[in-house]
Design a protein around this nucleic acid. Structure first.
Lengths: 149, 149
DNA sequence: GTGGGTGCAAAGCCTTTGCATTCCC
DNA sequence: GGGAATGCAAAGGCTTTGCACCCAC
């Protein structure tokens, strides 16, 4: 199970690397690792997390590189910001299925959730009523997780 | 129009001040001013905005005071954080009707919107399916406003 | 008068920038 | 070899902290 899941994710990472390279971007060891981390991870990551994950392995990566790489991946639209904490910027892969987050106010745990109904009706309402052209939305739920209730 | 609107908001501010005082909190000039600003303002405000608004008038207020006052109002649950920009923390009065924001990706304008349907069904779904007890949510829309389309 | 509120300066954090060095293609 | 990517140190920007002074009650 875990294995097949990893395979799928690794395929996604390779695909991303392939496309980047095709478009003339260099694939350095750090860039490849970061792409793999974002492909494997199903929770939002911030710069500090990412630095820690990278440093777990063999060689160290400088934080400047991490920030620059985040900027690069944002520009390539491979990751996106997640609006769950106004004090820290979190990111997640744009390749994930459209989902939302449950953030526990007590322990800080973040869970993903795919909702049964989407917000397309609401977005239509906004475009009609407010003449606002919605390109994306952020819907996050705050409360208490099972363990903290 | 404008006048009556201000009156309503000023009433709200006086009510807040009254309650704070009743609970043993001191009402300083700065605290009162900040409460009035949040009551009058219908857009999310950040510390910098607030400092600027306070400095427009007669005497200057120190930024430390602004940050401490924001902390105080948060603790009193009179203002809440708004999740629209991961780089800056915005706040708005908790006394406003439940609403969401439309953030223009081009000019940065923030509009309020009250949606026809609420998310209570979705919150019930989450409590049932994920055993997550929702206390509040953040729903923000990003896109292009009328002028920027 | 007392204790909370304020101002100032300094420190803390996270993030960005400048510049010389490294290494992918 | 050329130019993008990297590492290091320093700077920037926002926020917090320490401490002496002030003012609301």
């Amino acid at each position: 199970m875990q294995l097949s899941c990893n395979n799928i994710n690794n395929m996604r990472a390779s695909q991303i690397v392939f496309n980047l390279q095709k478009n003339g971007n260099r694939i350095t060891r750090t860039r490849k690792k970061i792409i793999e981390i974002f492909s494997k991870e199903d929770k939002p990551i911030n710069a500090k997390n990412l630095l820690r994950k990278l440093s777990l392995n063999d060689d160290k990566v400088n934080k400047t590189t991490v920030y620059r790489e985040i900027g690069f991946l944002l520009k390539q639209n491979l990751i996106q910001q997640v609006y769950i904490d106004p004090k820290e910027i979190f990111y997640e892969s744009t390749g994930l299925d459209h989902h939302h987050h449950l953030i526990c106010n007590d322990c800080g745990k973040i869970e993903d959730v795919v909702l049964e109904k989407d917000l397309s009706d609401t977005e239509k309402e906004l475009e009609k009523k407010m003449k606002f052209k919605v390109s994306n939305h952020s819907l996050e739920f705050f409360g208490l997780c099972v363990n903290c209730q």
